[in-house]
Design a protein around this nucleic acid. Structure first.
Lengths: 341, 341
DNA sequence: CTGTTAGCGCTTTCAT
DNA sequence: ATGAAAGCGCTAACAG
């Protein structure tokens, strides 16, 4: 049978010193002589005391070394998204290095209240599906940072989505092209569909809006007009949703010869559908993606896309949170012109 | 300026009732009349008290609603592995449903001690790289469950890896074939290499051993012998490591005509190398994978592999942990015979 | 450098 | 059905 865990008090008693001394030995080396400290630590080890109880420390110190990563969507969805998991990679690197722990928090949760009291801070990756969470984050007082969207008053990490979209579209679109856009989370619908005149959701600063603006600016400069029935809404960057949209585009008449996709996953799905249907890429169909995921380099033809470093985004977000930086960060991006143009 | 958070005591004072009553209103509805409770909750809402402080609850109740998922490797590596992230998907579904939170814990961390005091339990997904963690898990007293490996005395979730490997090899290998094996974590080396006579690492029950046993049993039944210089060690299921091994195999003389791979990632990398080098699959080279990841169905030719449901594995592991089940679970698998055989 | 002590905010008997 | 009081295990002033 396992014995009950020793408490700091027990140990103090056993070693015949005060609790403060034990506590100091573990937490504040400067408060006692090195020799004494060594001695105490050794004794503790011998009797099987592994250090102050963390639950008590959290209450007392008001710090847990846990950082909550608030996702836009469910955890289930997020971990299988290559862009998001690359971001997590960056975050986790920094956290591990700093001895912090990572709590994954679903963006469709009811509330943030059940962790706000013990977590050290929040990294919000994308606007949470449940809008209430964003509000709660503002109202509470722990440090927080947003990535790929903004909350008033909080520092953020972003790329210039409008400019990036503009530049890739600028490469893709020629005067006289028939252009369609496969957009992400543009309107309030759980299904893939054309946008038509549905009101666009999210704030003006949502990445999808910014990308859309960029696409449209580039097109308009080339004298290409895009009606809203040539803009699709895809509820999330998921292969199945993307495939539906891809099929709709390819079966539209007249079929567009250029499709601007708001994620690589969408673009790859479109590419695969197009090839399956016997189209030549880019002769019959030019395609651009967005993100620069690894898989987009491996396909034949490989994708033209906007590369952003999600690992770096994660590292910067985590670092900024831990340093309590209040500045907004704008990361650079890079066009990758592949064989789909 | 944000005011200091209200405490339960403040609220009791303000409402003119005892702290116990407030506490009960939030935690134990049966301890007071529904009307009184409603009233109290409403008042709390009005004055902006969102409920008992969680840090204090953790200390007092000894429960946090946080489950630690102890990974085999770093978080960074794990989230980008399709098999692992599918497993996380399953775990997170169940946890979210039960109002539990997910703490990701790297298997190469120094120790588990800094969370053991507040976490409600551990799901260990694969033998942690740092062996010490497994020991610590046994020694502590919170519920724990292992997946894809075993720790003495803890319940586990597994498939029959030996049998699965046997069956897929049995489909792949014909008498007279020249067979190579691309193995995962077989010996103690951080680099891809042939096994030769290096001692195999891990317990006999490690999944890699079991799979190796299965492969060898099938081969030996067909009268096919595999020398240890036709068995490769790959340190983790990573595309780059896999590619090295793939190249070595393909450039070996005489080139094997059948390669049994211990993961789909490895198999896909081999497949791509083979096609790039102009080989015909399966005429020149038969390939089998292991896991049944989505990408393996999408490739042309698609992969012959062993499908196991990682989502289900995650769901079952999480459920078993929360229910404190002590039984071992053996999940089924399914052969998928694709175009690489 | 070490010990005493007052909480961190809450839950839960135990009386009432 | 409610209230008073004793801790959960620890840390940080402060006094010595």
């Amino acid at each position: 049978m396992k014995k009950d865990k020793l408490t700091l008090k027990d140990v103090a008693l056993r070693l015949g010193v005060s609790t403060a001394t034990i506590s100091n030995a573990f937490n504040r080396p400067d408060q006692l002589s090195a020799a004494r400290r060594e001695d105490i630590l050794a004794q503790c080890e011998k009797i099987g005391y592994t250090g102050p109880n963390k639950a008590a420390q959290i209450l007392r110190k008001g710090r847990s070394n846990i950082v909550a990563l608030v996702l836009a969507d469910s955890i289930a969805y997020t971990v299988s998204d290559p862009v998001a998991s690359t971001f997590i990679k960056g975050v986790s690197k920094v956290l591990q290095q700093q001895g912090k722990h990572l709590l994954l928090y679903a963006g469709d949760s009811a509330s943030i209240l059940d962790v706000v009291d013990f977590v050290d801070g929040f990294i919000c990756y994308g606007a949470p599906k449940n809008h209430k969470l964003a509000q709660e984050i503002v109202q509470q007082s722990k440090p927080a940072i947003t990535v790929d969207f903004n909350i008033e008053g909080l520092p953020s990490v972003n790329i210039d989505n409008e400019q990036a979209a503009y530049e890739i579209a600028n490469q893709a679109v020629k005067g006289g092209d028939h252009v369609a856009i496969l957009g992400l989370r543009l309107i309030d619908s759980p299904t893939t569909c054309r946008v038509y005149d549905s009101p666009l959701i999210g704030s003006d600063s949502s990445i999808s809006h910014r990308r859309l603006d960029g696409y449209l600016r580039a097109c308009s400069e080339k004298g290409v007009n895009i009606d809203s029935d040539w803009i699709w809404h895809i509820p999330e960057s998921d292969r199945n949703f993307a495939k539906q949209a891809a099929k709709e585009v390819l079966h539209s008449h007249p079929r567009p010869n250029t499709v601007l996709c708001m994620s690589d996953i969408i673009a790859l799905e479109l590419l695969q559908c197009a090839l399956t249907e016997g189209l030549e890429v880019p002769q019959d169909l030019k395609i651009t993606g967005f993100d620069g995921i690894e898989e987009a380099e491996r396909t034949r033809p490989n994708l033209s896309t906007v590369c952003q470093s999600s690992v770096q985004k994660g590292e910067i977000a985590a670092t900024a949170l831990l340093d309590a930086t209040q500045d907004d960060t704008l990361l650079s991006f890079e066009l990758k012109l592949g064989e789909t143009l």
